[in-house]
Computed example of a mutant assay.
Amino acid sequence: MDGTTQVIGDRLHDLLRVVRLLKHQRSAERPAIPPGLVGLLGQIDRMPSGCHARELAIQSSLDPSTISRAVAALVTGGLVAREPDPHDGRASVLVVTDKGRQAIAEALEWYLGALGQALADWTPDEIATFGHGLARFTQALDGALTSQDSTEAAA
C-alpha cells in the first residue's frame, strides 16, 4: 500500500470512529429509534408501498437474519408495522408508522444540526468540493467492492 492510500485509509478509519460516536450520541439524546436502525427505518420509509424484509436485506446488503432482528426491534418500538401483502396473503409488507415517521424527522433534524455545526466555518465552495469528492469516493469504493465480489464469485 502506498503512502497516499495509507493516508486515505487512516482518514477513513477516523471518519468511521466519529460516525460511531455520532450514532451513539444521537441514540442517547433521541432514543426513539434503536441505535443503528435510523438508516433501515429510512429505507423502509422511502418505499412508496412498503417492502418485504427480503427486499430490505438485498437493498441494504445485509444478511436476512440481521434484517429480521432489526425489523423485530422496529416493530416492537412501534416504528414499523407488518401489514398483509395485498398480492400474496402469506407474506407481509413492512410500512413505517406515524410514530416512525416522527422519529425519522426528529433524527434527521438532529443529524442535520450536528452536520451544520461541523460545517459552520466551511465556505460553500469547500462544502461543495467535499460533497463531490465524497460522492466520487463512495461510488469508486462501491465499484471496487462489487468488482471484487464478481471476481471472487467467478473463481
Rank of each mutant, 00 (worst) to 15 (best):
Ala70Gly: 04
Val95Asp: 01
Pro86Glu: 14
Ser92Ile: 08
Asp14Val: 10
Lys99Pro: 01
Ser147Leu: 06
Asp125Ala: 10
Leu119Asn: 02
Trp122Lys: 07
Gly113Gln: 11
Pro86Arg: 11
Asp10Ile: 14
Gly89Tyr: 04
Gly42Pro: 00
Thr146Met: 11
Pro86Val: 11
Lys23Thr: 03
Gly116Trp: 02
His52Ser: 04
Leu22Cys: 08
Phe130Asn: 06
Ile127Leu: 10
Ser27His: 03
Ala120Val: 09
Thr138Glu: 06
Ile44Thr: 01
Ala107Cys: 12
Val93Gln: 00
Leu37Ala: 01
His24Asp: 13
Ala107Gly: 06
Met47Gln: 10
Leu145Pro: 01
Ala155Cys: 05
Ser61Asn: 14
Ala155Pro: 02
Ser60Pro: 02
Leu74Lys: 02
Ala153Lys: 15
Thr4Pro: 01
Thr97Met: 02
Thr151Tyr: 06
Arg20Asn: 15
Ile58Asp: 09
Cys51Ile: 02
Gln6Thr: 13
Leu108Ile: 13
Val95Trp: 00
Glu152Ala: 04
His24Tyr: 08
Leu108Trp: 06
Ala107Ser: 14
Leu21Ile: 09
Glu29Cys: 09
Pro34Glu: 03
Thr76Ile: 11
Ala28Cys: 08
Asp98Lys: 05
Asp149Val: 07
Pro35Trp: 07
Lys99His: 13
Ala153Met: 12
Ala140Asn: 10
Asp2Lys: 02
Asp85Ala: 05
Ile127Asp: 03
Lys23Leu: 13
Met1Val: 08
Arg82Ala: 09
